[in-house]
Nucleic acid binder design. Sequence first.
RNA 1: GCCCCCAUAGUUCAACGGAUAGAAUAGGAACCUUCUAAGUUCUAGAUGUAGGUUCGACUCCUACUGGGGGCACCA
Length: 589
Amino acid sequence: MVATLKEQLNFLLKEAIRLLQSEGIVPADFDLAKIKIDYPDYGRGDYATGLALQIGKLIGKNPMEIAEILKKEIEKQHPIEFERIEIAAPGFLNFYVSEKFLLGELEKILKEENNYGRGKKNNKAVLVEYSAVNIAKPFGIGHLRSTIIGQAIYNLYGFLGWKTIGINHLGDWGTQFGKLSYQLFEKKLKGASSKEAVKILGKLTLADFEKIYVEFHQEAEGKPEMADYGRQWFKKLEDGDKTAKMIWIACVKTSLKEFNRIYGLLGVKIDHAIGESFYLDKIAEVINEAKEKGLAKESQGALIFEYPNEVLPPAMFLKSNETSTYFSRDLAAIKYRIKQWHPDLFIYEIGSEQALHVRQFFLASELLGWAQKSQFVHIGHGLYRTAEGKFSTRKGQTIHLEEVLNEAIVRAEKLISGSEQNKNLKDKEKQQISEMVGIGAIKYNDLSQHYSKEIIFDWDKMLNLKGNSGPYLQYVIARCQSLLSKAKNRRGLDPREVVEMAVEERAVLGMLFKFPEIVAEAAKLFSPNLLCNFAYELAQKYNLLYEKLPILNAEKKEQKIFRLALTKATAQILKNSLTLLGIKAPERM
RNA sequence: GCCCCCAUAGUUCAACGGAUAGAAUAGGAACCUUCUAAGUUCUAGAUGUAGGUUCGACUCCUACUGGGGGCACCA
C-alpha cells in the first residue's frame, strides 16, 4: 500500500521522536499516536504540527528549541518531498512540499486518472447496510439520507481497497403489515373471492397503500382495539395465512417497482436487497442460542433479551403472541451475514432515532460471542424535519422523494434554458443535464452536512444550484472540459518547462495531491462531508486561477501547457470526488 | 423520571485540541467587445449561559438553558 504524504510525514516525525527518546530527551512513555498533523491556513505551508508545543510542555523546555531539534532530525533524513521546514512561534513546525513532488503528483493524476488514490485490495470486508426502505410506504424524504450517505460510505471503502457488501435491509415485515392487511381487508376485500381480491390488489398503487395505512391510524385513535386487530393480522401473516400472504405479496411487488424507479433516478444500486422476512426462519436458532447462553428470559408473556447489569434496557425477541420483532430479525441478520460474508466491519446507516435499538442488537451480538464491539459502527444520521417537527408516516406528513427530485430537475432545466451557453443544446441533452444537476444538488446538499445533524427541510436550500452546491462543482468541471476541448496542443506536461509558479497555480497544485488523504479521512470518520469540503475548496481555488490567469492565451507556451495540465487534473480530481459521492458530472452545462 | 443527539453570522452549514473561527445565502458596492456570469472581487455580520481541564478549547469535562429523539409488544 502506497502511503500518502501525510503518512510519510507522520513516519518521519515518529522516527525523530524515537531518536529523541533513545537520547533521553523525550520520555519513553510519550505516546507516538499523539502526533497530529494539520493542514494549516494558506501561507503556513502544506502541513503543520504543534508537536513541539506538546513535548516542550511535557519536559519543561522551550517549545521553540524542541521544534529546532525536530526540524534538524527530520532534515537529516533528507526527505525529498519537502523543500523546507519552518518554525513559527510559539513552536509550530510548518512543512512546505517541494514543487518536484507536486509536479510528480500532477503527472500521476493525469496518468492514473480515476484510479489516482485508489487503495490496493486489503483483504478486509465491510458490510454496509443502508437505505432500508419500508415496503408499502412511499420512498419519503426520510430515507434519502440513509441511501445517499450509505452509498457514499460504500464507495469510499471500496475505493480504499475493501471488499464491500451493500445491503438494502428492506422493511418488509412487521406489525405494520398486520395493520395494513386489516384495513385493506375490511375496506376493500371483504366478501371478494380470491380471484377478485388479486385483481383489486393489483390495481393499488403505493400511494393507495400509504392512504390506507394513514387511515388505519386515524381510525385507531378512536378505537384502541384496532391495534390488537393489527397484531392479530400480523400473526396470521407469520403463521402463513393465505389472505394475509396475498396482501403482503401485492404490497412487496408494487413497492419494489416504484422503489426501483427512484433508485434509478438517484443512480443508486445496492448489491443485495434482502427483506426482513428473509430472516424469519433463522430466528429460532438465534433464540435457542441465547437461551443456552442464559441471555433469553420470559417476561410478561414475551421472550426478552436481558443485558447483564442492565447496561441496556431489555430487548424483545418475541411478543406475547409469539410473533417476531425487528430485534430478533436484526440479530438473525447479523448471524446470517457473518456466516455469508465474514465482514470485518459492519456499518449501519440508520436514522439516529434507532440508536437504542442498534446498540441493543450490536451488544447482543457481542454477548452472544459473534463479533467484537469494534466491528460495529452506527452512522446515526439526523432526521429531516420541518420547522415544526418531525415528519410522521403515520399521520401522512411525508414529502415524497420523487416529488423533490422532480422539482430539482425542473429548476435545473429552467437555469439551462435561460443560459446563453446552452441554448443550442438538444432537448434530450438538456434533460440529461437537468437530471444530473438537479439530483446532484440534492445529494450534495445532504452529503455536505455532517450526518449527526438534523436537516431542516427547505425547498430553496435543498434545491440550491448556486454557491456551495453540487452544481458549482459540476460547473467547474464543465468549464475545464470546455477549455480542454478548445486546446489544440494536448501534449503531456514536462515539469522542467515550468519556470515560476503563480500563487494561484501553486494553490491548485497544493490541493490536488491531498485527494487520497481526504478520501481516507472521510472513510475513517464516516464523513463524506469532508470530501465535499475538499472538492469545494479545490473548485474555488481553480476558479480563482481561471479568473486571474489566461490559460489558452497564456504568455508563454510552457505556461499554457502547465495550466492546461492543472485544468485537466482539477477536472479529474473533482470528477473522482463526485463519483465517490455518487454524483454525476455532465460534460457541459 | 432516565438515556442519547444537537446548539457557531439574520438564515442554512464548515472547522482533525492549534496560529487571524471558514463558506453559502439574504443585505450593500462592483466585474461579461478574452478561455462557460450556475462565475469573480470588495463590504458588513457568529462560537447559548456559568464554571473547569489545557501552553492553547467551537472542539474535552461538569452544571444549566433551549431544540430534537428514544425508553418492551410499531419499525
